[in-house]
Amino acid sequence: MKLLGAENSEEVQKLLIEQFEAMENSLGGPPVVAVVRHLELAKKLRDEYQYRIFGFVVAAHYPAPAKDANGVGELIRVSYGLRSVGKGTKLATWQVCIPVDGAIPTLVPLFAGADWQEREQFDLVGVRFDGHPDPRRLMLSEDWQGHPLRKDYAIDTKVHPWR
């Protein structure tokens, strides 16, 4: 199976591992970068490597501890993807692990397209994006309690009065 991390070009993979001390992903996903260097990495990819299009941000909740030292205890894995069209369509992906009550710096100042995607991840998974200009829910109603794509969200949670 081709790993998602293998989508990265050689120069991006080299940048991630040598300059940003990215660790191998225990689940076989893209390389894991520390939260404190996340914003710096995105800025560098945009300005120096021509990854100017915001591809995606996808978060997933892992209730059990990961298999190795990548993460300890319950955590949220946030995957990012940037695209470049200047050098052929290429993808640069990396992952950031945060605790469930942790926050991650927003990419909205760098990429305007990150706005709604980050709002969606906040809405459904409950990732807190520090410095987001408009941190409201995107899909569910504003008075919704909880984040339904967390693994501990019960399927029969009452949504008054419709369910």
């Binding site: 899909m139 569910l140 339904p148 969200y153 399927i155 949670t157 949504v159 009065p161 419709w162 369910r163």
Partner: peptide
């Protein structure tokens, strides 16, 4: 029916 965001039938309202 069992998805968190779907109403199980409009005769509930």
């Amino acid at each position: 029916r069992n998805i968190y965001s779907v109403v199980p039938g409009i005769d509930t309202f």
